[in-house]
Design a protein around this nucleic acid. Structure first.
Length: 423
RNA sequence: GGAGAGAUGGCCGAGUGGUCGAAGGCACACCUUUGCUAAAGGUGCAGACCCCAAAAGGGUCUCGAGGGUUCGAAUCCCUCUCUCUCCGCCA
């Protein structure tokens, strides 16, 4: 959510943001709702003020006296008027709120123009995609793959996109998680194990509700949502709280399984492990002072990149253009790992600065020691990292002629052996 | 799952229909005074929103959440959420 004052004082900034993100929003309509909301608010508050003044007078009068009874009669009319006005005002206020939520966050000046994913800027490329294994093939075609990752039985037991991981498959997944968490903790993040179901208030604060309701699994009868990412419970940890300035930045990491319905996905995107309904991910999250959020974004990105470097996987860093940035983000980098078998890049992390956009919605603030006033923190997050696509890239890039997969040295202590076998 | 008790400001806690955004205490900040590592006194100290060009100032809302009764609700009624105690069940 944007600061409503920004809309009033600098509507041209909001207009420019909408244009840069290539969204279609009737800003004039939003402005109109805002002014009538304010006009009605003033009116309703005036009436209430009248009521209050009368109350104080009546408190001094003798109960049941003629003056008192006259006042009661007089105020009955005012009371009815307030009730009538408030009804309309409440409806308008809901509209106002919805209109405010429809405005996107402002993109940072460094965000390149562009409409489509093709116009994202390649910020950096690490490693040589062409140097990877000559016998690379898409992971789902590797002989014996189904012995490690069983889709058909997952479909029988749960549904499409809920594979079983077995043997070395399960172990590789677990090794990656352990490796990620250890590295993240070394980088200064405090590990958290959060609830993996959240209530509607939390899902609303981080923006999954109301727009992306169809992307989450919802439980009956308690109306809890399976988390689509640890970002949701992690960010909501401090919802409605005022932090000490001295504790900033707060850096945390968390492993959770992530659940996504992925309604509307199709084709090559969903082959094998590229897109599944349940996957494991370690998320990095920071609550920072507004003055340092872009510095912190670079650090966050470097922290996520280091994981890929230690795994010796070729990857590239994309700086997302305005049109592909996302509604709530001010600036976003995607990390994409090279999958030699599919000969394509797979997104394994998305590192974003939300500035105060999420914090306003979630009311996460810190107290400015100079003014004594609460101010909104900036929030950032990024994956560090998502397991299945890293899993896929390791299989595809490191497949040997003998049909085994050689694991990177950094992972060997976690996996316990140098080679993964499909037997 | 059953029975009962409760939810008030950073914390503790008073307040059962009116002048209560809320006594008192603690904590915190500043000031004064006295002075052997502290005491006493004073002042301030919740958040959000609106009006105002801004400052000053003014107004409204918030006593777990939502709704209701009433001229008027922290206080009465209803629903929900959470916490605690006891019983039951169970990793």
């Amino acid at each position: 959510m944007l600061d409503p004052k920004l809309l009033r004082e600098s509507p041209e900034l909001v207009r420019a943001a909408i244009a840069k993100k290539h969204l279609t929003i009737d800003l004039d309509a939003v402005t109109a709702i805002d002014s009538s909301w304010r006009a009605q608010l003033t009116e309703v508050e005036g009436l209430r003020s009248k009521q209050k003044a009368a109350n104080n007078e009546m408190a001094a009068l003798k109960k049941g006296s003629p003056e008192f009874m006259a006042k009661v009669q007089e105020m009955k009319a005012v009371s009815a008027e307030v009730k009538a006005k408030e009804e309309g005002f409440k409806a308008l206020e809901e509209q106002w709120h919805a209109a405010m939520l429809s405005l996107p966050n402002l993109p940072h000046a460094s965000v390149p123009d562009g409409r489509t994913p093709e116009e994202n800027r390649v910020h950096a490329t690490h490693g040589d995609p062409t140097a990877t294994s000559t016998c690379a093939q898409p992971h789902w075609e590797i002989a014996g793959f189904e012995r490690l990752v069983d889709f058909p039985r997952g479909a029988k037991v749960t549904g499409a996109g809920f594979p079983f991981l077995i043997g070395d498959g399960a172990k590789l997944s677990r090794s990656l998680l352990q490796f990620f968490l250890d590295e993240d903790v070394k980088a200064g993040y405090t590990e958290v194990s959060p609830p993996i179901f959240v209530n509607a208030a939390s899902a609303t604060a981080t923006g999954q509700l109301p727009d992306k309701e169809g992307q989450m699994y919802e439980t009956t009868p308690d109306r809890l949502y399976a988390v689509p990412t640890a970002e949701v419970p992690l960010t909501n940890f401090y919802r409605d709280e005022i932090l000490d300035e001295a504790v900033l930045p707060v850096c945390r990491c968390a492993y959770t399984p992530c659940f996504r319905r992925e309604a509307g996905s199709y084709g090559k995107d969903v082959r094998g492990l590229n897109r599944v309904h349940q996957f494991d991910k370690v998320e990095l999250l920071k609550w920072v002072h507004p003055s340092s959020s872009y510095e912190e974004l670079e650090k966050l990105r470097a922290d996520a990149e280091r994981l890929l470097q230690k795994l010796e996987l070729p990857y590239r860093v994309l700086l997302m253009c305005g049109g592909d940035l996302g509604f709530a983000q001010s600036k976003k980098y995607d990390l994409e790992v090279w999958a030699a078998g599919q000969k394509r890049w797979l997104e394994v992390s998305s590192c974003s600065n939300f500035e105060s956009f999420q914090a306003r919605r979630a009311q996460i603030r810190f107290r400015n020691p100079e003014s004594g006033k609460p101010e909104l923190v900036h929030t950032l997050n990024g994956s560090g990292l998502a397991v299945p696509r890293v899993f896929a890239a390791l299989l595809e890039n490191n497949l040997q002629a003998d049909g085994r997969v050689k694991l990177p040295a950094a992972l060997v202590p976690y996996f316990g052996k140098e080679y993964l076998s499909f037997q």
